[in-house]
């Protein structure tokens, strides 16, 4: 069996997460991916924002930063720019990344800075008690949408693709093995990588929407996720309540820190000639 324990800060257990929460599934997948890539743990830096999902950083035995709400990508940008040899992974939630942190999200993707973003999309602000987020489906209930959410939602992966991310993928906690592979690919991508993982929040989203047990919520993921290949063959009506999973975009582009290094080298060479 995979030795999770060696990567965990067990003194800080038990986890704060509710039973059945999807965050733990993502954490384990992330560890398998890191282990599979044989990354030296001193060189791994995990940065998170604020939210249930963002508590993940603290449980891992790497260089870890639990930042301010929405700002994980800004701290991570500073870390990567100042010390590019670190592998920087950002763990964030739908609220953290697409509401309060939305601006940083599109700009980090635009810069194509070499960060791997694991966005745990549970369709809700879990930590604060289940208020609706930019990804709460229209019509779904939340503590701030007692009559159903009347707003439109973000297509988060589409946003990252449009902004210029090098690698964009989506999966679910039901498809944990696929998550491993996608996270691995994301880390290996020299540029901005987004892995959006649909996860259950049985406590806040589940109860408000009568979504059933954590297991039932995962079966919902199974039944509503389709591959891009299958999606192509489906009618718009069939696709209405579905979402695609797998690699959604691969778009190799110049990476922010590497380009800046070229600039440094050029400027210094010119300076030396003078």
């Amino acid at each position: 069996m995979f030795d999770y324990q060696s990567y965990l800060r067990l003194d800080h257990f038990p986890l704060i997460w509710c039973p059945g929460c999807g965050n733990g599934v993502v954490m384990k997948s992330m560890l398998r991916a890191i282990d599979n890539l044989r990354l030296p743990r001193d060189q791994v830096c995990v940065v998170s924002g604020i939210g249930c999902s963002s508590r993940l950083s603290g449980y891992l035995d790497f260089n870890t930063v639990h930042t301010t709400h929405g700002r994980a990508l800004t701290f991570a940008t500073g870390i990567k720019m100042a010390k590019p040899e670190l592998t920087v992974i950002v763990v964030t939630g739908d609220g953290d990344c697409t509401a309060i942190g939305g601006n940083h999200f599109i700009h980090a993707a635009r810069r194509n800075i070499d960060l791997t973003v694991i966005l745990i999309n549970n369709l809700i602000y879990g930590m604060t008690g289940g208020q609706h987020s930019p990804t709460t489906p229209s019509g779904s209930r939340a503590s701030t949408a007692p009559f159903g959410n009347s707003e439109n939602t973000f297509n988060v992966s589409g946003l990252a693709i449009a902004a210029g991310a090098s690698f964009v993928a989506r999966s679910t906690t039901y498809h944990a093995q696929q998550c491993d592979k996608l996270i691995e690919k994301g880390i290996q991508t020299p540029g901005f990588a987004l892995i959006e993982i649909m996860a259950a929040c049985p406590t806040s989203f589940g109860r408000a929407n009568k979504a059933g047990s954590p297991a039932e919520m995962m079966l919902w993921q199974r039944d509503h996720a389709v591959t891009p290949q299958r999606a192509e063959k489906m009618s718009p009506e069939e696709l209405q309540d579905k979402f695609t999973i797998g690699v959604l975009a691969e778009n190799p582009r110049p990476e922010c820190r590497a380009e800046y290094q070229k600039l440094i080298d050029r400027v210094r060479a010119e300076e030396a000639k003078r």
Binding site: V47, N63, R71, T74, K83, Y260
Partner: peptide
């Protein structure tokens, strides 16, 4: 390294991150 951030919130976050690397 000089980086133009998207706003001052981001600027402040970035300098804290960079400082953590020493």
């Amino acid at each position: 390294v000089f980086i133009a951030m998207e706003d001052e919130i981001a600027s402040m976050g970035a300098i804290i991150g960079a400082s953590l690397t020493g």
